[in-house]
Simulated assay, not measured.
Amino acid sequence: MMRGALAVSSDLTLRRLTLSDLAAVDELNLLAVGPRIDPNVVKPESHAYFESIFAGRGFFVGVFDGPLLVAYAILQHDHAAKDDPRESLGLPPGAPVGRLAGARVAPAYRGRHLQRALIAARVAAAPPDMLLFSTAAPVNTPSWCNLLAEGFPIRDIQFFFGGYARYLMVRDGSSYDPAASIVVDPLDTERQKVLFAEGWRGYARGQLETGAPGVIFGKPALG
């Protein structure tokens, strides 16, 4: 687990949050997402959900500028039955599995790679026997790009949180051959579902012929 405060940059520090930080989490959540949230892009989160994480469903990691909370992220290990990922991941009931859940960065601190730092911090803080996964909307390019860069390839497109399309991204340590890959439009759900069924995985960001972001697909290397 994390010990004390870890340096993020020369002026920012990172540490585990406690219940005393709950009001700051609520405030940052509203600041980061605004008064209206599109659930097709970002999962809405509530004060009650935050309380449940502090009560034992997981933990928060926060980035501070002095006393000010400027970014946070959640690792959740207790999952609601309707969103339990174990069957989708081929895991038995009760297997340790953690979801990299909601993350927020204050607008003034965006562009400083804090999302990636928070992904890495949660990976480092998770128990070694816990399988880690996350979800990201195909339309939310920054989210899935950061997860890909931190070793979470895309395994499937599923519907979570009341029926919204999300990439299922699982940290499994797989490697891929760039010479045997293709670039796919993240909005082309039908083609991606076919590739997933054939054993392909999305493992890096690419670029479509139009110049728009694409997902590089390959098959995990054997051995």
Rank of each mutant, 00 (worst) to 15 (best):
F50D: 13
F50W: 07
E51T: 10
E51I: 07
I53A: 09
I53D: 10
I53H: 09
F54L: 04
F54V: 06
A55N: 12
G56I: 02
R57C: 06
G58M: 08
F59P: 10
F59A: 12
F59Y: 15
F60L: 09
G66N: 03
P67Q: 05
P67K: 09
L68K: 15
L69R: 03
V70K: 12
A71Q: 05
A71P: 06
A71L: 07
Y72K: 12
I74V: 15
I74H: 04
L75D: 15
H77M: 12
H77E: 11
H77V: 13
D78T: 07
H79R: 11
H79Y: 12
A80H: 11
A80F: 08
K82I: 13
D83S: 08
D84M: 08
D84V: 08
D84W: 11
D84P: 05
P85M: 13
P85S: 10
R86A: 02
R86I: 03
R86T: 02
E87I: 07
E87Y: 10
S88V: 09
S88E: 11
L89N: 06
L89P: 03
G90E: 04
P92I: 05
P93Q: 04
P93S: 05
G94M: 05
G94F: 04
A95T: 02
A95Y: 13
P96G: 01
P96M: 00
P96V: 00
G98M: 05
G98Q: 07
G98F: 11
L100D: 06
A101Y: 11
A101R: 06
A101D: 14
G102C: 11
G102R: 15
A103T: 09
A103C: 07
A103W: 00
A106H: 15
P107H: 12
P107C: 10
A108H: 11
Y109T: 03
Y109M: 08
R110H: 04
R110N: 06
R110F: 01
R110G: 03
G111F: 04
G111N: 07
R112F: 03
H113L: 02
H113C: 00
L114F: 06
A117Y: 02
A117E: 11
A117S: 08
L118Y: 12
L118D: 08
I119M: 04
I119Q: 04
A120S: 08
A121G: 00
R122S: 07
R122I: 06
V123L: 13
V123F: 13
A125Y: 04
A125I: 03
A126C: 01
D129E: 15
M130A: 11
M130W: 11
M130L: 05
L131P: 00
L131W: 00
F133P: 01
F133A: 03
F133W: 05
S134D: 01
S134P: 00
S134I: 00
T135G: 02
T135Q: 05
A136Y: 12
A136D: 11
P138T: 01
P138S: 03
V139M: 10
N140F: 03
N140K: 06
N140C: 03
P142A: 02
S143Y: 06
C145P: 00
L147A: 13
L148I: 14
A149T: 01
E150I: 03
E150L: 06
G151R: 07
G151N: 08
G151T: 01
F152G: 00
P153W: 10
I154S: 07
R155I: 02
Q158L: 14
F159D: 04
F159T: 10
F160H: 13
F161E: 14
F161P: 01
F161M: 08
G163C: 10
Y164A: 13
Y164M: 14
A165E: 09
